[in-house]
Nucleic acid binder design. Structure first.
Length: 330
DNA sequence: CCGACTACCTGCCCGC
DNA sequence: TGCGGGCAGGTAGTCG
């Protein structure tokens, strides 16, 4: 599941039990996940204190007091569960991203178990084992093969129409593949690429070069897409936090997949554009209640935003499902 | 450099 | 109830 918003949600859940705590015990139950664990992985972690838990793209990064960094990637099916110890920071249970370990969980895929000095037990569970963990030497992140080629952090100020245009100029590759390329933008995955293109009303089949003009400056499409990417991710991060509680009560699991999407997974259903106050419309300003209200008001008065009426289709690009509305995504 | 493709792994869901 | 096929949120490696 984990694309950037899910990883960020997990980070916010883990931070209160990991930051400031020591690894009292580290159980590594197999020699590898997607890659072999580094030599003496458990021994190098044990006794170390987590100074901060950060995120880069889809990686969780625990900075250790040794100067090393523990990098964790969730692959396709990786998840963390937490059993809270008495010493966890007050309020930890209320924070988004928390998910509670259940005795019935599929323990045979619990590959790594951290017991923290505050008594909390953190389990990494990953049925498909596409995830991985590694330790990075002090100061070694920029040169590390996993990180050196990573593209721009999409929620950072560096994620500009200009950046998109400069990377997209002259490329025949479809927008879908361009946005999935972690060397350009790091953190989008199959779902949020579909959602961002939908929000920007751009076809996933369009060549990436559509994001730039002849001179290489950002096109209107490029400006729209840059904004759509950030809006989609911000909304998803916000939803991950706010919706978690209900999800947890429902089945005790992680709160990131109940989020409903505007286009992903909606094959054969009516396009939502123009049918709902927040039905995937490209908003002029994200996260601004006042603007959103004004926008809805304008629509009800002028009737400018009629329902699209199209049908969501699924096509395969690079072996992966793309969902889009051919009627409004051009 | 670009772009297409394969491989890695398990679980789940569907149709027969 | 079992079995085969297709599908799943990711990405590293290979090849033309």
């Amino acid at each position: 599941m984990p694309e950037l918003p899910e990883v960020e949600t997990v980070r916010r859940g883990l931070a209160p039990v990991m930051e400031g705590a020591r690894f009292a015990k580290v159980e590594q139950r197999r020699a590898d996940l997607r890659f072999p664990f580094p030599a003496n992985f458990a021994r190098r972690l044990k006794g170390r204190t987590v100074e901060s838990l950060g995120r880069r793209a889809k990686y969780l990064l625990a900075c250790l007091d040794s100067g090393e960094m523990l990098a964790m990637h969730l692959g396709m099916s990786g998840r963390f569960t937490i059993e809270h110890g008495a010493g966890a920071k007050a309020g930890a249970r209320e924070l988004p991203g928390e998910f509670v370990h259940e005795a019935s969980a599929d323990a045979k895929h619990d590959h790594v178990v951290f017991t923290m000095s505050n008594g909390s037990v953190i389990r990494y569970n990953d049925a498909r084992r596409f995830g991985y963990m590694t330790l990075i030497e002090p100061g070694g992140m920029d040169a590390h093969p996993l990180f050196k080629g990573l593209g721009v952090e999409p929620l950072s100020p560096a994620m500009t129409p200009r950046l998109l245009a400069s990377r997209a100029a002259g490329r025949a590759q479809p927008l879908k593949a361009f946005l999935l390329d972690q060397r350009v933008i790091a953190g989008l995955g199959n779902i949020y690429v579909c959602e961002a293109l939908y929000r920007a009303a751009l076809s996933p089949l369009r060549p990436a070069s559509a994001l730039a003009t002849q001179s290489g400056a950002p096109s209107a499409a490029g400006r729209l897409l840059a904004q759509a990417i950030q809006a989609v991710l911000r909304d998803a991060v916000a939803a991950g936090g706010s919706s978690l509680r209900d999800y947890r009560q429902a089945d005790g699991s992680l709160g990131y997949f109940q989020h409903t999407f505007c286009v992903y997974g909606r094959e054969g259903q009516l396009c939502l554009r123009g049918t709902h106050p927040s039905g995937g419309e490209m908003r002029p300003q994200t996260g601004d209640i006042g603007t959103r209200r004004a926008h809805a008001h304008e629509r009800s008065e002028g009737g400018a935003a009629r329902a699209c009426g199209g049908m969501v289709e699924r096509v395969i690009q690079n072996g992966r499902s793309t969902f889009y509305c051919p009627t409004c995504q051009k």
